[in-house]
C-alpha cells in the first residue's frame, strides 16, 4: 500500500504544485531518460540528488520518503537478482564491480520511482486530466482517467466493508493452502464486481442527465496557462537533458571503485 501512498495527491499550494503538469511531466521524462542512459552509480546519485530541492520546495518530504520506503522490498529484489545473475555469469566469483553494478541498478529504480512520485504528489488529477485533454486526446479518455482517480478511494473503502461483512459471516481469508486462499476471495470479489457494475450504470445515468455528449465543442471550467515558473523549469529540464546526453556520449564516467582508487 505504501508505494501507492506516495502517489496520493494532497491539495496544498507550493511553487511546484502550481507548475503546469505538462512541463512537470517533461521534467520527469528527462530524469527518466537520464536514469536509463547510465549504468554507473555516480551519475545516478547526482540524478537522485537533483530531485531533493524539488521535493523540499514542494513541501512533500514526508510523503515522498514514505513512497521511497515503500520501494524497499522491490529494490531488494532488484539488488539480489542482479547480484545473483552477475555471480553466476562470472562463474562463481563476485567482484566489487558486480556489487557496484547491482547497487546502480537498484538506485536507477529508486530514481524512477522518486521522480514519478514527486510528479503525482504535486499534480492534481484534475490538472492532469486537463493536460491530457490538451494533448488532443479524446475527452472520453481524460474523463475516464479523472473518474477512475475519483473512485479509487470509494472502491477501496467498499472492498474493506465487504471483507468485514463476510468475516462477520465466518469467512477466514487467511485459512487453508494457496488455492483455498484464492477461493476465499470469491465472496469478496463477487459483491465488489456486482456493485462496481451497478455503480457504473448509475454514473452513466447521472452523466446522461447532465447533458453528456450535447456538443462536440466542450468547454472547460479550468484553463492551463504557462507561467514564469514553468519557463524556468523548462530551461532547467533542457539543461539536465543536454548535460546527461553530453556526459553519456563524450565522457567516460568512472565507476565508484575506479574513482575511489584514483583518488587515493
Amino acid at each position: 500500500m505504501s508505494v501507492f501512498d506516495g502517489l496520493k495527491y494532497r491539495k496544498v499550494s507550493s511553487p511546484i504544485h502550481d507548475l503546469d503538469p505538462r512541463i512537470k511531466f517533461f521534467y520527469v521524462c528527462a530524469i527518466f531518460v537520464g536514469a536509463i542512459l547510465f549504468w554507473t552509480i555516480l551519475p545516478l546519485l547526482i540524478l537522485f540528488a537533483i530531485q531533493i530541492p524539488f521535493v523540499l520546495l514542494a513541501g512533500v518530504k514526508r510523503e515522498w520518503l514514505r513512497s521511497l520506503r515503500g520501494t524497499i522490498f522491490l529494490a531488494a529484489i532488484i539488488f539480489l537478482t542482479n547480484l545473483i545473475v552477475r555471480y553466476f555469469a562470472s562463474g562463481g566469483a563476485l567482484l566489487v564491480t558486480d556489487l557496484e553494478f547491482a547497487a546502480a541498478m537498484t538506485l536507477r529504480f529508486i530514481v524512477l520511482v522518486g521522480s514519478f512520485s514527486v510528479f503525482f504528489l504535486t499534480t492534481s488529477p484534475d490538472h492532469l486530466g486537463l493536460a491530457l485533454e490538451r494533448t488532443r486526446m479524446p475527452y472520453e479518455f481524460s474523463f475516464a482517467f479523472t473518474t477512475a482517480v475519483r473512485f479509487v478511494p470509494v472502491l477501496a473503502e467498499e472492498a474493506q466493508t465487504i471483507m468485514d461483512a463476510q468475516k462477520a459471516r465466518g469467512l477466514e481469508l487467511e485459512k487453508g493452502n494457496f488455492l483455498k486462499r484464492i477461493r476465499n476471495y470469491i465472496p469478496v470479489l463477487v459483491p465488489l464486481i456486482v456493485s462496481a457494475i451497478r455503480r457504473s450504470l448509475e454514473l452513466a445515468e447521472a452523466m446522461e442527465s447532465r447533458a453528456w455528449g450535447a456538443t462536440k465543442k466542450r468547454t472547460n471550467l479550468y484553463i492551463l496557462r504557462l507561467k514564469q515558473g514553468d519557463f524556468i523549469l523548462f530551461v532547467i529540464t533542457i539543461v539536465i537533458l543536454m548535460v546527461t546526453v553530453y556526459v553519456r556520449i563524450y565522457i567516460d564516467v568512472p565507476g565508484l571503485s575506479q574513482f575511489l582508487s584514483g583518488v587515493s
Partner: peptide
Amino acid sequence: TSVASLAKKVGFVFQNPDHQLF
C-alpha cells in the same frame, strides 16, 4: 480471539445487503 469465533455469538447484519450477497 478471532472474528470467526466471536461471529458465532455475535451476528452482524450490514447496512447494504449488496455488500455480502454473492
